[in-house]
């Protein structure tokens, strides 16, 4: 009674499936094994291994690249939950290294310095699934057409300021809502305007949502921030600098996990928000030297 035929690996269903399993959870940026253990202890569904959190990348300037494989392996050895890692936009050789390391998801990320000003990575060519950022629906659909299996609204990483995440979520979800009532000929216009493949536009109009899960990133610093973006329609959250740049990272991490699950229950969000200490210091978007969200095309 056993199916002994050769199993299929790297199918779209298997790659998108891991994103489905991460829904309702919190993916946390970590820079070493100790932070990874704190994240897992707090109930993170996955960790993102990187050498510097976005707020430090922003402070340091210079070229930000894929992390050292030894550092990623140290984090893989420290936790049992999925480990993600970032490659530069268009840097398929970094992505090949990350796949070779066995990372569970590759983030082709605007937080690192882009390697290609014209093309993103051909993500269909990989067994390991990719997540990509998007600021609007056209960008999301172009990434999906390149093989992304999860979209995260970009927000503005490393600022602790939720305003860009809200703008991007509202833009993507608002356009999807508008498309569901469009006539067939109007969908041709949508495809042209969004610079996105017509078949994906038609699929989104029929389903009323993206064909892959959509999470939110970039600026989440408190449990209420997580509850806000979940109520707006995000299916899970990425928290970068917001945990390990706060005063009490372990307490903040647990609180954001609970607020993400119970996002619609204000009494629970209130309970977990009490006595957290200081959140990460924030930044006004207008005063930034570099906006990461503008990277990618």
């Amino acid at each position: 009674m056993s199916g002994s035929d050769t199993p299929d690996i790297g199918t779209a269903r298997v790659k998108r499936g891991l994103a489905e399993m991460l829904r309702g959870g919190v993916i946390m940026d970590v820079v070493d094994a100790e932070q990874a253990r704190i994240a897992e202890d707090a109930g993170a569904t996955a960790v993102m291994a990187l050498e510097r959190v976005p707020s430090d990348i922003r402070r340091d300037g210079g070229v930000a690249r894929m992390s050292d494989p030894a550092m990623i392996e140290g984090i893989q050895a420290a936790v049992t939950i999925p480990v993600m890692a970032k490659c530069r936009i268009g840097h398929f050789a970094e992505a090949q290294v990350l796949q070779s390391l066995g990372v569970d998801y590759i983030d082709e990320s605007e937080v690192l310095t882009p390697a290609d000003e014209a093309y993103h990575v051909d993500k269909w060519a990989f067994t390991v699934p990719f997540v990509c950022g998007a600021t609007n629906l056209g960008e999301a659909l172009r990434r999906i057409s390149e093989g992304a299996c999860m979209i995260r609204s970009k927000g503005e990483a490393g600022t602790g300021n939720i305003v860009e995440a809200v703008r991007h979520l509202r833009s993507i979800l608002g356009d999807i809502r508008a498309m569901t009532t469009a006539s067939p000929e109007e969908l041709f216009g949508w495809a042209k305007e969004l610079q996105a493949p017509l078949d994906l536009v038609q699929e989104v109009a029929t389903r009323g949502e993206l064909p892959v899960p959509m999470f939110c990133a970039g600026g989440i610093a408190t449990p209420a921030d997580a509850a806000l973006v979940m109520q707006l329609g995000a299916q899970a959250v990425f928290v970068g600098s917001g945990i390990f740049k706060s005063e009490q990272p372990d307490v903040m991490a647990k609180a954001i996990v609970e607020a993400t699950t119970h996002f619609a229950d204000a009494s629970i969000v209130t309970k977990v928000s009490r006595g957290l200490g200081a959140a990460m210091p924030g930044a006004e978007i207008g005063q930034l030297d570099v906006t990461f969200a503008d990277r990618g095309w």
């Binding site: 199916g3 035929d5 199993p7 690996i9 199918t11 499936g17 796949q99 569970d104």
Partner: peptide, 25 residues
Amino acid sequence: RQRDSFEADLDVSGLPGGTFRGVFI
């Protein structure tokens, strides 16, 4: 890890209608 996640057809005891596609993640 995820790169080893797979699909395979399963014979499920007592389930009519042929094999069932098992998705293992």
